[in-house]
């Protein structure tokens, strides 16, 4: 049983910002239990479900957590409740946490319920929070059937009665049940290219195409990922490959809008076997009419104006005008 570690790299890897977000947010259809719950929130009520053994679970589960049986009897609970667990968020995240100031997260068991739901508590300071504290909903004035219709739980003085939900000020709120919610999920990353791809990308900035191979192999991989995929051996030897290659296969795309980077339709994407490389490069073929592209066509690199260490610096390939490469030379690669 041994440990593995290696020395530091001489060069920092490239890092680029990345946003993972489905445009417009995920659309979540609700089904009967959650429809009852979100419709209740819109109407200023907390709704739970009664299980076969008489317990009340909130949010209303579709299926009994103990028996997996379907549930179908909805009951109003609360609105006041008791905190059964809590923590504190000192620095809310704009665009995610909907309260702008520090707040508590809590499990709140509404009166009449046997389970607790996750909620936010607008308590000002954490010293106010405790397990056992009494809280009541502060309802949003404009309620549209989202989790934020219950804007926050707020501390409730002993013996005080919770305030009823104010009239809903949302325009055009009907009696129809809420059947769908939209959940925006935006995650931000600083993606690290890794050691081998960083070398390749820095080569592109110099208009060079740099692949790598493992010590015991003459297979040059472009772009390199760090290993010879056939053996798993690290690719420690750098090899600059040619800027010309052969189209091994391709397709003409006639559908628009597949990528922000896609040119106007019709356009050609191809596998291009670079001279000296073991695997095809995949991307655009430009500089000729799409109908002129052929398997075996000889092509050369097209560079963007930018000299950046970025995959998009190598825009694609265009015909060289040389005679086509014979099928036998590249058929193993298509």
């Amino acid at each position: 049983m041994t440990a593995t570690s290696e020395g530091p790299a001489p060069e920092a890897p490239l890092v680029e910002h990345h946003v993972l977000e489905y445009p417009g947010g995920y659309t979540r259809s609700l089904g009967p239990a959650l429809s009852a719950f979100f419709t209740g929130l819109r109407d200023g009520r907390l709704v739970g479900a009664r299980t076969a053994d008489g317990r009340v679970v909130v949010p209303p589960a579709e299926h009994d957590p103990r028996t997996a049986a379907p549930l179908g009897e909805w009951v109003e609970v609360g609105p006041a409740g008791t905190v059964t667990a809590w923590t504190w968020v000192a620095n809310p995240k704009p665009g995610k946490h909907h309260l702008s100031g520090p707040f508590g997260f809590a499990l709140v068991r509404p009166d009449g319920a046997d389970t607790a739901l996750v909620g936010v508590v607008d308590a000002g300071v954490p010293e106010v929070m405790s397990v056992g504290m009494r809280v009541a909903p502060r309802w949003a004035r404009v309620r549209t059937g989202t989790i934020h219709d219950l804007e926050a739980w707020v501390p409730l003085a002993d013996g005080a009665a919770p305030a009823p939900a104010p009239p809903n000020e949302a325009p055009e709120v009907g009696e129809e049940p809420v059947t769908r919610i939209v959940c925006p999920i935006r995650l931000e990353y600083e993606i690290n290219a890794g050691i081998a791809p960083s070398r390749y990308l820095r080569g592109l900035a110099q208009r060079r195409i740099i692949g790598q191979r493992a010590r015991d192999s003459d297979h040059v991989y472009v772009p390199p990922r760090g290993s010879d995929p056939m053996t798993g051996a690290p690719t420690e030897i750098e090899v600059e490959v040619g800027q010309t290659g052969t189209v091994t296969t391709f397709c003409i795309t006639n559908i628009a809008g597949l990528s922000e980077l896609a040119p106007p339709i019709p356009y050609v994407t191809a596998q291009v076997l670079l001279d000296g490389a073991a695997t095809p490069w995949f991307g655009l073929v430009t500089g000729c009419d799409p109908t002129e592209v052929r398997m075996g066509m000889r092509v050369r690199a097209v560079w963007s104006e930018q000299a950046a260490p970025d995959a998009r610096t190598l825009v694609g390939f265009e015909p060289t005008g040389e005679p086509d490469a014979p099928y036998e030379h590249w058929k193993d690669y298509a």
């Binding site: 990345h18 296969t249 397709c251 896609a262 994407t269 398997m295 970025d310 298509a334």
Partner: peptide
């Protein structure tokens, strides 16, 4: 299926654009 990732050559033609060239190669063969 085609979320663009930094440093990765984008799949500018979607999933079909990945498989259609292989179909062309099959037809050729």
């Amino acid at each position: 299926l085609t979320i663009p990732m930094p440093f990765t050559p984008p799949l500018v033609a979607g999933a079909g654009g990945y498989f259609a060239p292989l179909i062309r190669a099959y037809i050729r063969r």
